[in-house]
């Protein structure tokens, strides 16, 4: 028996918004410690890794490890039926071929349940090594979304260049060039407004706008985003999900541009 009840059901709706453009389907690996999802996009350029810890749920029970292959378009349709203040429970029997979503309104006057068929997915899981990154940049997530959106007008790629002075985002194309420099903030009233750069060595890498823009669909999950870069390895774009977990996107760099 698997059952996970999330009082802040809106978080699950936001998680869905954050992955559904990138992935058509994904396996939710449910275990005693929580729910994990790892999947590559169709082009195998990026990878999504979602971690929801059991402690973040109001009620969590997972008697046996369970892999639930879900069509994300179907799951998204179902989650759209939940109100933002609904409590959401996911449940499934052991070896079941369906999952049930139960939505409870805060005062319990409306309870809906939706059963969805599971699909067998044969997805490769990749081992992601623990890495010390040369540059770790924290910035407001809305600022990052704005930068990606603005620079996408100029070309297909964004160059991210991190030095001890700060971080520079650049794009170039037919209409011209664009550069956005962010300096590390000295003092801020709110920590979520800060730009912080932790640099061991300068790094410059080029990434496809298309994917960065899809990652920014996670912006409503967290006021801050963390970018981790090292030479010639994938970028990590991480959004914390309150005290329940995180969503990380890994993006392979463009080379020879």
């Amino acid at each position: 028996m698997f059952e996970a009840r999330l009082v802040q059901g809106a978080l699950l709706k936001k998680v869905m918004e954050a992955i559904k453009e990138l992935l058509n389907e994904a396996s939710f690996d449910c275990a005693h410690s929580g729910i994990l999802l790892q999947a590559m996009d169709n082009s195998h350029v990026s990878l999504v890794s979602l971690n929801l810890r059991r402690e973040g749920f109001d009620k969590y029970r997972c008697d046996r490890n369970l892999v639930m292959g879900m069509n994300l378009s179907s799951m998204s349709k179902i989650l759209k039926c939940a109100s933002n203040d609904d409590i959401i429970t996911m449940k499934a029997q052991d070896n079941a071929d369906t999952v049930t979503f139960v939505f409870e309104s805060p005062k319990q006057e409306k309870i809906s349940d939706y059963e969805m068929k599971l699909t067998n997915l044969d997805q490769d899981h990749l081992g992601i090594p623990e890495t010390e990154y040369s540059c770790v940049i924290k910035l407001p997530s809305a600022e990052f979304a704005r930068i990606c959106r603005d620079l996408s007008q100029f070309g297909e790629s964004i160059v991210i260049s991190c030095t001890k002075e700060g971080v520079k985002f650049s794009a170039a194309g037919d209409i011209g060039t664009a550069n956005i420099k962010l300096a590390q903030t000295a003092t801020v009233d709110k920590e979520e407004d800060a730009v912080m750069v932790d640099m061991q060595e300068p790094v410059t890498l080029t990434f496809a706008c298309k994917y960065l823009n899809m990652f920014t669909k996670a912006t409503p999950l967290s006021p801050q985003v963390c970018l981790s870069m090292s030479p010639d390895v994938p970028l990590v774009v991480e959004y914390k999900i309150e005290d329940i977990g995180h969503i990380r996107y890994y993006l392979a760099p463009r080379i020879g541009d």
Binding site: V45, H125, L251, R254, I255
Partner: peptide, 14 residues
């Protein structure tokens, strides 16, 4: 997309 590397070339399959 020209010059785009694949994520699977950086991480090994489990």
């Amino acid at each position: 997309m020209a010059g785009q590397s694949k994520i699977s070339s950086f991480f090994s399959s489990k």
